[in-house]
Write a protein that binds this DNA or RNA. Structure first.
Lengths: 239, 239
DNA sequence: AGCCACACGTGACAC
DNA sequence: TGTGTCACGTGTGGC
């Protein structure tokens, strides 16, 4: 039977569907001739031949689909029909996971961005102060080139009655005020009154803040370190 | 032939693989009996029966895979084998597109976040003010619960010499000051001097700011809308 | 009736 | 050597 010989080239017929009729030793005409004209009974075998060609087309279509499936799935190990489907399943599951991951990341980014347009103050600030790597990771590349605050002077004085006076001088750059406000808020300081003045690229700040219950020494160091963390390393700082 | 009768329940055998041996009128023993014991020659037909059962297992495995594929693909229209594969292909392509979309969005968010800790000032602010949907989309759920600024009063007055006086009253909540500072910085306003006073949960701010070159009317509206965007919808606002 | 989709058994081929 | 995979033709059931 030539029909059995024909499928030596499995996927070639699918790879080059235009050539398949030419490459195949039998085509529809030959088949109908084989099944219709040579058979003793004309009518009954005609139905059988129709069924044959129909079934053949069905198989062909299914193989085409299978090959198309194989085309959209990367990293297919084996050309097995079963393996193709298996890899496709795993790939879809992989895509599902990745989609979830990406959506979670987007949600994280969006909420982090909006909840606090900067970063997660109370959350990130301790990390920010503790881990230098994390800080560099956040403040990298585009952020670093124009954002670091050049701290010129910083004074933190205890005035009694749980009240401090913070007075600092720094260069005015992008986000300078934002970052300073962040630091104060992250320390949960009650700002009684604040005065900010800027002239010729310099920013002067004087704040009266009230602590909750922490002792003064601890808070004083906290404020200094928090603000210093925003500073570029080399700039001078005095108590 | 019972073998042919058995597949009346196409996928049921796959749907309930535990029951298939019970539900099937024939099992392996019956088959081997049919093909082995009843055949005149024992040895040759044994190989044939092995081939038969092997082929049967292969088909079964392939169908199981196909059904598993159908399980991970939503919205399958037809139960056709070909249709299942077709839907799977389309679904994978859909996932591909979505993955690209999500990655692009993440890239967008990340760059926007790093480039400017607030939003993309000139870039995002117009969008933020223009599209209400996008704003609601951004300011959803976790963001809204504790962050919105309750704006009580807002005044923006032009003082001449490219100088404005912005005076506002709002409730003091988390990040209130940070967000306000962000708005001012995002508008690239030069802050000449600012005074902030907080008492009994209320925040009073008075700023003298200097514009670059924009005409006063535009800037005035910009400031108002930008600050109002941080507000909760129902709070009163006066010019 | 015709049509469509299926599982089956079988021979051929490859490793 | 067999073991695995394939396409084929065929019979059958559902619409």
């Amino acid at each position: 039977m030539e029909n059995i010989e024909e499928d030596k080239h499995f996927w070639e017929n699918i790879l080059f569907p235009n050539q398949e009729l030419n490459s195949w030793p039998v085509d529809e005409a030959a088949l109908s001739g084989y099944y219709d004209s040579s058979s003793p009974d004309g009518g009954a075998s005609s139905a059988a031949s129709k069924n044959i060609v129909s079934e053949r087309n069905r198989r062909k279509k299914l193989n085409e689909r299978l090959f198309a499936l194989r085309a959209v799935v990367p990293n297919i190990s084996k050309m097995d029909k079963a393996s193709i489907i298996k890899d496709a399943i795993e790939y879809i599951q992989h895509l599902h996971e990745q989609e979830k991951r990406l959506q979670a990341e987007i949600l994280d980014l969006e909420s982090g961005k909006l909840k606090n347009p900067t970063y997660e103050l109370e959350h990130d600030l301790p990390i920010l102060l503790r881990s230098k790597k994390r800080r560099e990771q956040l403040f990298d590349s585009a952020t670093l080139k124009n954002s670091p605050i050049e701290l010129i002077e910083l004074r933190v004085a205890y005035m009694g009655e749980k009240t401090f006076v913070v007075s600092l001088t720094c260069s005015k750059r992008t986000d300078t005020m934002v970052k300073l406000c962040e630091v104060f808020e992250s320390l949960k300081l009650k700002i009684i009154t604040a005065n900010i003045t800027s002239f010729s690229g310099t920013l002067l700040k004087t704040l009266f803040i009230q602590a909750d219950e922490t002792e003064k020494d601890v808070l004083q160091i906290k404020i200094q370190t928090a603000i210093s963390a925003l500073n570029v390393p080399q700039s001078p700082m005095s108590i």
